[in-house]
Amino acid sequence: MSVTPLDSKVALKIRGLQKTYGKSFEALKGIDLEVARGDFFALLGPNGAGKSTTIGVICSLVKKTAGTVEIFGHDVDRNFSVAKQFIGVVPQEFNFNMFEKVEDIVVNQAGYYGLPKKLAQERAEKYLRKLGLWDKRDTQAKGLSGGMKRRLMIARALTHEPQLLILDEPTAGVDIELRRSMWEFLQEINEAGTTIILTTHYLEEAEHLCRNIAIINKGEIAENTSIKDLLKQLNRETFILDSRTVLAQCPSVESYNLHQVDDTTLEVSVEKGQSLNTLFAKLSELGVDIVSMRNKVNRLEELFVSLIEKVEREGADAAPTKPATTVKRA
């Protein structure tokens, strides 16, 4: 097999990417995006924001209207054969022949990347074992459970050992236990050097796995930063506090907005810079003994919602004066 040297430090580089469906629906409005080699990158956005269209363009499943896409420095239009060697894709929907056997699906995919049959069979065994599907290798794909089908798509995407793995909502509809094991597996391959781009609706997943994030909304990048920096923007968090004893009434603590949920549960909204130690000390003085504490909602989820709301507010404010965008079809 010919091996093309990977000398680019940028795994994915998108410039001015536009996609217009029909004559007027702009799914992507000229997005710019860069993902560093070795990164674990989250692409988040509400339904219809343009995540899957972006992935579709990267993988040549969707024709772009304008812009450029480079994979490790190789333009997907001018050097498509080399660029595609580096990508593995796990799409949102099942896209394999349900009547084919599990092993055949993975071996065939390796063949489409030019891997000799013996090597393809070795790779298929390696990844089917890792993903707990080896026992099902002779089963027709239609006989797999939903979670197994998702894992099969991951095994298929890894069979040519891509440098960039793109996963479009890989854990949708997967139970918690399996999701956790998939997280571990993805972390393992990321640590081994594979760049991963992930779209997900589970924001906990992005917070847990990814180092950098882009939030896309209505075809535009609303935010592109590290998860750490993004979470720093969070001004307020809500905590649930569990009391050891039954509370006769909601305790009152100056500058803390406490609310009693039930006999033993309190809810408090804490602003950035406010000390939780002070709150616990004051509650202790009032005879309230807190035994456990947790976030009311996922932190990233709070931020995500506020960001999307902010972008939409700004969009609505700017709309009357915003000039119409002319999109040139490539």
Partner: peptide, 18 residues
């Protein structure tokens, strides 16, 4: 057409196969 219908044609489209 079955490959188009089931979207399994995407296996080929995402690959470098000319």
């Amino acid at each position: 057409y079955s490959a188009k219908f089931t979207k399994s044609i995407e296996e080929l489209q995402v690959s470098p196969t000319p």
